[in-house]
């Protein structure tokens, strides 16, 4: 349904995308996972014809979106990250405006607004001005405006950022219903659990490249081994953590020993087999390093990310937040 081929995009000296290729089958709920600055928004903006790539091809429902943007737009519903709402209009007026921009006839306009208002439980407040809405209400209104014209493809950019748990669960449910009804959905997120719980397939984006692609189960299975999180203390010092890291790196059957700063210098590692764990405890006590906790689990999507990039998603996220340039981001988003 969606095919992106070798997309590249550069903003000044920053290579936002360096050859991203993706294929989203029809009726699939597809997740685009990655830290801030990985290029997710750029991919979605190109897909929605808001931005032209420097190179590459975009096909939506068989339409070449770069050559026929208007036809592609008819197939697309887009729910942007920063919800742009006209505060002085009511939700209904905004939906009517949107419906007119999609050229829906009057009867269909009223019917769709009524349907979506019920589906997204907006009846109680749809005739209030948008300026009075909470974050969850705005997001629902935005979702409704993306769905007015019953698009074949729904694109959502970080749809649950800043939402409370209840709104988030409600949104997830609607997305699953949509997918079950045949809509192809592409959503970006930097929440692992969101993509893990929702997506049929996903691509992990990092530094403007797709570094892993497949179904969540497939990606996790391919990693093999068990994930272990070891803490020498509840909050270990960097020195202690490094000492333990050196020791563990020498153990047989142990892979990918990294220090997770976001978890108070816990140590993440991969072990192949339960007997390795026993040996590991022994060696630590011989080196008189304490063990505060030791947790073992099957691989998660975070491990998929860790395996591919050598850092955890949270670490990448923290680094990205530190190096963000809101001014440049605003400039990119502004026409």
């Amino acid at each position: 349904m969606i095919r992106l081929e070798k997309l590249s995009k550069r903003y000044g000296s920053v290579q936002a995308l360096a050859g991203v290729s993706l294929e989203v089958p029809a009726g699939c709920l597809y997740g685009l996972l990655g830290p801030n600055g990985a290029g997710k928004t750029t991919v979605l903006r190109i897909l929605c014809t808001l931005l032209a790539p420097d190179q590459g091809a975009v096909t939506i429902a068989g339409i070449n979106a770069l050559a026929e943007p208007r036809l592609a737009r008819q197939q697309l519903g887009y729910v942007a990250q920063e919800v742009a709402i006209d505060k002085i209009l009511t939700g209904r007026e905004l939906l009517e405006l949107q419906a007119n921009l999609y050229h829906l006839p009057r009867a269909q306009r009223q019917r769709r607004i009524a349907e979506l208002s019920e589906l997204l439980s907006m009846d109680a407040w749809l005739d209030r001005r948008c300026g009075t809405y909470s974050g969850g209400m705005r997001r629902r209104l935005d979702l409704a405006s993306g769905l007015l014209h019953s698009p074949a493809v729904l694109v959502l950019d970080e749809p649950t950022v800043g939402l409370d748990i209840e709104s988030r669960t409600a949104l997830w449910q609607v997305l699953q219903q949509l997918r079950d009804g045949g809509t192809t959905i592409l959503l970006s997120s930097h929440y692992l659990e969101e993509v893990d719980a929702l997506a049929d397939r996903l691509a992990i984006l990092d530094g403007g490249l797709v570094i892993a692609e497949g179904s969540p189960a497939e990606l996790k299975r391919n990693l093999g081994g068990d994930r272990v999180t070891l803490r020498v203390r509840e909050f270990a010092s960097p020195q202690e953590a490094e000492q333990a890291q050196r020791l563990l790196q020498g153990c047989k059957g142990v892979r990918q020993v990294v220090i997770n700063r976001a978890q108070g210098h816990a140590i993440n590692l991969v072990v192949d087999g339960d007997e390795v764990l026993e040996r590991l405890r022994q060696q630590l006590s011989e080196a008189s390093l304490p063990v505060f906790s030791l947790a073992q689990s099957r691989p998660s999507l975070d491990d998929v990310y860790l395996q591919a990039t050598g850092r955890t998603l949270l670490d990448a996220e923290l680094a990205a937040v530190a190096s963000r340039d809101p001014k440049a981001e605003k400039k990119q988003a502004m026409r």
């Binding site: 808001l50 036809l71 942007a80 920063e82 999609y102 050229h103 405006s145 502004m334």
Partner: peptide
């Protein structure tokens, strides 16, 4: 332009 409403308009198949 500044508040992104223009992008909402431009995504529509005007």
């Amino acid at each position: 332009r500044e508040f992104g409403f223009l992008n909402r308009l431009l995504v529509a198949p005007l």
